[in-house]
Nucleic acid binder design. Structure first.
Lengths: 357, 357
DNA sequence: TTGTATGCGTTATCAC
DNA sequence: GTGATAACGCATACAA
C-alpha cells in the first residue's frame, strides 16, 4: 500500500564524492583501505568517512563483485539441518565466522543428494570464496567436490574425505568408540550389546574400530551375537526407529546384556524406548550410552550418557582452515589438504550406572 | 590423468553468441524468454538453447542483478536455528520454495537481536525480493521491520505482528491451549497444574487464553496456586531447566495435581525430569502435555503428548504470501498485511493417560 | 595527492 | 528478426 510514495533511492559512491567534495575514486580508495590510501591525508580520509556514514552509504555488492571477483562470502552447505548434529556443527561454524569480514551464505540440502550438488554449483556461481560442507553421512566422494576444489578452498566437517584431497575436520571417532566401551567396562559391565554404524559410512566405522581396539587392549572379547549393525538405510530421520527395532530384536533373542552402546544418540534413544517397552528400566536393568551429545540426550529422562564432540572447536578449525587457504592462494603458496581430528569427551548422565552385583 | 583439463574459465554470453552465430542480445532475449522472443524463429531459439546447454552457460548473477535490480532470491532470517521449532518451520519454508524460481538466502541470528537487525540490513542490501522471518519469541516490534516493509514484501512466521502492518503466519495458539486442557480434562483429570508462557510474549499468551476459554465453557475452574508463569528470561536454551525448576516448586508445595500442561515441549521435558527426580512416574502419577511437537517429544521415553503445529502448511502460506505480494507489486495492485492462523492438532503419545479412579 | 577513463557481464532500447 | 549500444555501480591503472 505504502510502496508507491517513497522510492528509497540508494546512495551511491558518487553521492559521497559530491557531498565530500572529492572524486569517486578517492572515496573508493579510502573506504576500502586500499594500499594507496596510505598516501591520502588523514584529514581527507576522515572527512570522507564521515560523509559516508552520514549518508549511510553502503556499496552495491553486485557492482563490487562484478568488478573484482571477490564476494566476501563463505558458502556453508549443510546436508540436513534437521539433523541436530548438523545444527550443532553449524553453530560452531557461524560463531567462528562472526569476527571475520566474511559473510556466511548457507544452504540446506534437506538430505537430497541432487539438491546438494545443485546448491554447490549455485554457491560457486555466487562466487563464494570458500566452501564449508557439513555432512555427517551418506556422502560419497563426489566429482563436484573435486571440481569445486579446483576453484576454491573447501573443507568438510563431519566426514573424512582427506584421502580424496579434501580437507576434513572431524571428531576422533575411534577414540570415541574406545571411550564409550571403556566407560561401560569400568562400570563393571561385561555383557554388552552394541549397535554398530552402517557399512556404508565411507569413514568405515571408526567408532567400531575403537571398540575393537579396546577389546584387544583389555582382553575383553566382544561377543558377536550381542552385536547388531545398522542398515544402510540409516539416516537422521530413521535412526530412532532403527535403534528401537534392533534393540527389540536383541531382547527377543533373550540374550543377556546389562549395557548397550549405540552408534549415536538418536539410535540410543530408540534403544531406550525398546527397553522400556519390554519392561526393562534404564539404567536399572540396562545401561545405555550414545554418541554425539545432541540436545535431546540432555533433555530426556533419564539423560543419556554420551560421547561429546567438540563442535565449537571443529567449527573454529574449519573456518580458520578456509581463511588460511584464502591467504595462501593470495600469496601463491602451497595449500595442502589436511585432516584434523579432535578428541571427544565422555559426558556422564543418568542412563549408565555401575553393574549391581 | 591424461584427460583434457578444462580451465575453470567462465563461459559468458558472448561465447554462446559466437558459438551459435548470433548476437549477444539475441541470445539474452531467447534465454530469458523475454516478450520480444516471441518474434524470433523457433529454429534460432532452439539452436541458441542447444549451444548454451552445450557450453553449460550460466549467466553471471552479479552482472544480471546489477543491470536489472532483481536477484531472484528470497531472504529467510531465522532468529535461532538451534531452536527445534525454528528448524521445523524452516523446513516447511524451504520445501515450499523449492518449486519456485526463487533461491533462499538464509541467515541465522543465533538469538542475537543485534545480529538479527544487522542481517536484515544485509539481506535488503543483497536485494532479496522478499523476506521471510522465523522468530518465535522475544521479538518486539522493530523499526527495521517497518523500514524493510517499505522496500519489499515481508512475512513473519511464528509471531503475530499483523497489528503493526506486518503479515504473519502462525498456529492458532488459543485453539491449541484449549485442546491441551480439553485433552487432560477428558482423560478425567481435574487437578491440573499449568506452566504458562512468559508475560513478554508479544502475542500475549494466547495459549493461556485458550485454556481460560475452556475453563469458562466447561465450568471448570483453574486453580491459581497450581499455575506458574515462565519468567521473561525464558528462551529455547533455558526452557528445560525453567520447566524443571517450576515443576519442582509445584511439587515442593505439596499441591496435589494429577496432570500438568506445559507452555511448550521443552518446558514439558523439564517437568518430566522434575517429576521423575521426585519419584513420580509419567504418566503413572502425573500426565504431562506439551506444545509444538518438536522432534524430541517423539524420541524421549515416554513420548510426550503434545499439540502439533502444521508447519509445513505454514511455510507454504508464507512463501505463497511473498510470491503474491511480488506479483501484486508488479501489477501495481494493493497488497494488504494479513494474518493467517492455522488450526493445530492433538498428538497423543505416552505421557498422558486416563486418571486412575 | 587526486581525477579520468575503462571494463566487469547483462539486459533493454533502439535502429537496421 | 536481429544486432549494435548504452547503462547498471564500482574499483583500478594511469594520467595530471
Amino acid at each position: 500500500m505504502a510502496e508507491a510514495e517513497t522510492q528509497p533511492k540508494r546512495v551511491k559512491i558518487i553521492d559521497v564524492a559530491r557531498e565530500s567534495g572529492f572524486a569517486p575514486s578517492t572515496v573508493s580508495i579510502v573506504l576500502n583501505n586500499a594500499p594507496v590510501s596510505r598516501r591520502v591525508p588523514a584529514q581527507t580520509q576522515e572527512r570522507i568517512r564521515m560523509v559516508a556514514k552520514k549518508l549511510s552509504y553502503r556499496p552495491n555488492i553486485f557492482a563490487r563483485s562484478l568488478r573484482g571477483s571477490r564476494s566476501q562470502t563463505i558458502g556453508i552447505i549443510i546436508f540436513d539441518i534437521s539433523d541436530p548434529y548438523c545444527a550443532l556443527a553449524l553453530d560452531g561454524i557461524q560463531r567462528a565466522l562472526l569476527p571475520t569480514p566474511y559473510l556466511p551464505l548457507m544452504m540446506d540440502a534437506r538430505s537430497d543428494r541432487e539438491q546438494f550438488e545443485n546448491y554447490m554449483k549455485i554457491l560457486v556461481e555466487r562466487r563464494v570464496e570458500g566452501l564449508i560442507v557439513v555432512a555427517t553421512w551418506q556422502l560419497e566422494q563426489s566429482k563436484f567436490f573435486l571440481d569445486a576444489r579446483r576453484e576454491l578452498p573447501i573443507i568438510i566437517v563431519g566426514r573424512d574425505l582427506s584421502r580424496y584431497g579434501i580437507s576434513s575436520a572431524i571428531v576422533d571417532n575411534e577414540a570415541g568408540g574406545y571411550m564409550a566401551l571403556q566407560h561401560l567396562y569400568e562400570l563393571g559391565h561385561r555383557e554388552i550389546a552394541i549397535i554398530r554404524g552402517p557399512d556404508k559410512m565411507s569413514n568405515g566405522d571408526n567408532r567400531w574400530r575403537g571398540m575393537q581396539r579396546f577389546s584387544k587392549e583389555y582382553r575383553f572379547p566382544l561377543v558377536m551375537k550381542r552385536i547388531r549393525k545398522l542398515p544402510d538405510s540409516w539416516t537422521a530421520a530413521t535412526a530412532f526407529s532403527l535403534g528401537e527395532e534392533l534393540t527389540r530384536e536383541l531382547i527377543g533373542k533373550s540374550l543377556r546384556f546389562t549395557a548397550l552402546a549405540a552408534f549415536d544418540d538418536i539410535t540410543a534413544l530408540g534403544a531406550v524406548r525398546a527397553l522400556s517397552n519390554a519392561g526393562l528400566s534404564v539404567p536399572g536393568d540396562c545401561s545405555v550410552i550414545g554418541f554425539d551429545d545432541v540436545p535431546q540426550s540432555a533433555t530426556c529422562t533419564p539423560g543419556v550418557t554420551t560421547i561429546h564432540q567438540p563442535l565449537s572447536e571443529i567449527g573454529d578449525i574449519a573456518v580458520r582452515s578456509i581463511l588460511d587457504s584464502l591467504r595462501h592462494s593470495e600469496e601463491g603458496s602451497a595449500d595442502m589438504a589436511h585432516l584434523r581430528a579432535f578428541p571427544p569427551s565422555l559426558v556422564v548422565r543418568d542412563s549408565t550406572k555401575p553393574l549391581a552385583k
